[in-house]
Structures are given as C-alpha cells and as structure tokens.
C-alpha cells in the first residue's frame, strides 16, 4: 500500500455544520485537517478527521455516504456553497482533495431545503423523494405478465434520451442548488424517462399528475428557469426535461378535464 503520485501533502481548515438533532440549533465548527494527500477523496478526508475526533473522545461528524463511486446518491454535502462541491458532473464522493490548496478554508454543510430536514450534522431526510416515486414513478408490470422483450421495439434515439433522464441518482443536489428548492428536475427526469418509452404510455397522464401533486404537497418550490439544477446535477441531467414534463402535465390536465371517465360501475360478469 504505497502512496502513488506522492506530491506534497497539505492542510486545510474545515468549517463544518454541526447539528445534534432535527430540533436542535446547528452551527459551524472549525477543524484543522493536516497532512492531506491530493489523491484522497473528500470523504476520505472526513474519515481521517472523524478518526481523530474519536481518538480525542469527541463525537465524529455524521455524514451520509455509501458507494463512494457516484452512483448510489447517498452523499449530499454542500461544499463552499456548491452542492457536491467543485467539479462538474460529480457527486460529493467523487471530489478529490487535489481540488483544494494548502491553507484553504473549506465550508461543508448539508443540502439545504425545507423538504429535506436535517437529521444530524450533514445528514438529511430525503424521504420526500421516495413518496413522489411511490405516487407514480413506475410502470405497472407484475412479474410473470411481461411480453417478449423484442415484441416492442423502442427507437434508439428514444431509448438513449430516456437513458439520459434515467441516470438520475436521487441525491437532491438539484433541490439544494435551486433558490426555490424545486424538485422539478428530479421529477421531470422520471416522468421523461418513463414517458419516452412505449411501455410507459398507458400510465403517462396519471403518472405526471400524481408525481407533480405529491411534489407540491411535500413543499418543494416551483421552477423559475435558472437551471442551477442541471449545473449541480452529478449526472448533468438537462433542464430540457423540465419543459417536457410541463408539456406532459399540461396535456394530462386537459385530458383529465375533458375526457369522460368510466364510472366503473356497470361492467363485469
């Protein structure tokens, strides 16, 4: 286990948001983090700080993390005011210490949004995203009922575009970056992914109405076209999908208003 590219090690001042629990007040606390290797990840730097705190008998900084390769969407730090910190198209766990210089003061806080209450220190509650998904972020297809996969061709451009939206990792950076704490990019990504697939047509109207309904009820704000969401997105999902969702929402609302619905009372044997 030999350090490679052993360029000179350095130190920073870490200014971290500490908050003991959801109802307690929080504050920034400074820690010195020395002997940093530029090839360390940002979270590895926090690991080292936490080990030092533990040895001193202090409580380590709680932070959310899991896969550490930018795909699970668990990590969620705002670093120097930017959700997921410096760098484009990366999650917090993909920030490396080479992005900082000796003597820097680095501010770390949780993603801020009323719909994402702080649980402790840098850990937030994003269960609102799950509730939006549960309202309609799916295609109903029970196991065992699926037709042969190649019976339904999907034009490659549609599948590719659907994939561009489907790469969302559900981290919430879009919400944290938005001055309105809007979840439109997150919701639009799922609405667009499923709406672009022929499989997703049967539930298309219901899906967009239900997901947007829960999104509003959860307290996320509206979109005012600043596109900070796309800029902060670790997967660089395009804000064009928001326009697509708005079109879907509009047509679904119209259809819901004018389309006669079955009473459901007369059929059956």
């Amino acid at each position: 286990m030999v350090a490679e590219h052993s360029s000179k090690n350095f130190g920073i001042t870490l200014r971290v948001w500490r908050q003991a629990g959801p109802t307690q007040p929080g504050r920034f606390v400074d820690y010195q983090s020395q002997d940093l290797n530029p090839n360390m990840s940002f979270l590895e730097m926090l690991d080292v700080v936490n080990d030092e705190l533990t040895r001193k008998g202090e409580e380590p900084i709680a932070f959310a993390h899991d896969c550490r390769e930018g795909i699970c969407g668990t990590c969620a730090c705002t670093i120097n005011g930017k959700p997921h910190g410096p760098g484009k198209g990366v999650a917090t766990c993909q920030v490396y210490m080479r992005a900082f210089r000796d003597g820097d003061v680095v501010t770390v806080e949780p993603f801020r949004a009323a719909a994402f209450p702080v649980i402790k220190d840098l850990v937030i509650d994003r269960s609102a995203f799950d509730r939006i998904q549960q309202a309609g972020g799916f295609i109903t297809a029970r196991a065992g009922s699926a037709p042969e996969a190649n019976a339904l061709p999907v034009p490659k451009p549609d599948a590719d575009l659907a994939m561009d939206a489907a790469v969302c990792i559900g981290c919430g950076a879009c919400v944290a970056a938005c001055k309105n704490a809007s979840a439109m990019l997150f919701v639009a990504a799922k609405v667009s992914h499923l709406g672009l697939m022929p499989q997703g047509q049967a539930e298309r109207d219901r899906r967009v109405l239900a997901m947007v309904g829960v999104m509003d009820a959860e307290g996320f704000g509206n979109c005012t076209n600043q596109y900070e969401c796309s800029a902060a997105c670790p997967k660089l999902i395009s804000h064009d999908f928001i326009a697509r969702m708005n079109r879907d929402y509009f047509t679904a609302s119209l259809r819901a208003a004018v389309k006669p619905a079955s009473s459901g009372a007369s059929g059956g044997a």
Binding site: A146, V154, A159, H193
Partner: peptide, 19 residues
Amino acid sequence: IDQCAALGVPFAREYGGLL
C-alpha cells in the same frame, strides 16, 4: 429481460429498436 423491459428499463438498443 422481458420483465425489465416491461418496467421501462432503458436497455441499449440497435437502430431497429431491438435490444
């Protein structure tokens, strides 16, 4: 594969739309 395609998994496709 049938089940995942039915759920809308955006698998890679050929130009003809097949998997």
